[in-house]
């Protein structure tokens, strides 16, 4: 793919990690912080394109997806958000916050047995974030957080399509374990900033804010004039 533009005026911050790692809470707190301080900020989350979502939902509900089409449909969803949300807002000089980014696909699709190189080439149009936070929590803690709070697991979420185990909880554990390994092996290559997530939200958030303040020239992203 043509090298994605890295020199856009905006800044891109992504959070990655297992379900139950606390990443969504943290990116929400970052969004609130930047908004309330008067910065130009835009938030986008995984699997939320209006154009593609109904197809994904149908595919999941009727269990029509294979590892290959699962990968492609999520890449399509991401592309729609990339072309219509992420890229224009980066060009306009916003701070774009992404709850999950391409590394989610790299980890999940590789865990489903897709060719790693193929997956990466599919996402070749996407630029890498300026900062990627990896919320690292012991696998057991993440599993307990999810399995305590939401006992009904979805088919693909639990990795039931892989036939790892008959029991959906067991399957979820094995599948999340694979994803966790994928994250760990990607961490150095993509400069993940590891945040120890076995701590309280406000303690973690202090660290996240500190990194952002150090690494991004935030004053450049302030709205010039406030609305009256």
């Amino acid at each position: 793919m043509n090298p994605p533009p890295q020199d856009l005026p905006g800044r891109l911050i992504a959070v990655e990690g297992l379900d139950g790692s606390g990443k969504s809470t943290q990116i929400y707190l970052v969004k609130r912080w930047l908004e309330l301080e008067g910065y130009k900020v835009f938030f986008t989350e995984w699997n939320s394109s209006l154009l593609v979502r109904s197809a994904t939902r149908k595919g999941k509900k009727r269990q029509l997806l294979t590892p290959t089409t699962f990968a492609l449909i999520h890449c399509t969803d991401f592309a729609d958000r990339y072309e219509r949300e992420i890229l224009p807002l980066l060009s306009a000089g916003h701070v774009v916050l992404a709850d999950r980014y391409i590394y989610t696909a790299f980890a999940r699709d590789a865990s489903r047995g897709c060719d790693r190189e193929w997956i990466r080439s599919l996402y070749g149009y996407a630029r890498h974030p300026d900062l990627t936070f990896f919320f690292d929590v012991p696998l057991e803690t993440a599993l307990n957080r999810i399995l305590d709070g939401r006992p009904r697991l979805k088919y693909y979420e639990a990795g039931m399509d892989l036939g790892l185990a008959q029991d959906e909880y067991q399957s979820f554990r094995l599948f999340q374990g694979r994803i966790y390994q994928e994250y760990l092996s990607m961490a150095p290559e993509f400069n993940f900033i590891r945040i120890d997530s076995d701590r309280s939200p406000e303690v973690m958030h202090r660290e996240v804010r500190q990194v952002i303040s150090q690494r991004i020239d935030l004053p450049a992203y302030r709205w010039r004039s406030r609305n009256p």
């Binding site: 154009l51 593609v52 399509t76 599919l122």
Partner: peptide, 10 residues
């Protein structure tokens, strides 16, 4: 409103 990358992947 479908962008070229999205359309190709679709």
């Amino acid at each position: 409103t479908l962008g070229p990358i999205t359309q190709t992947l679709f």
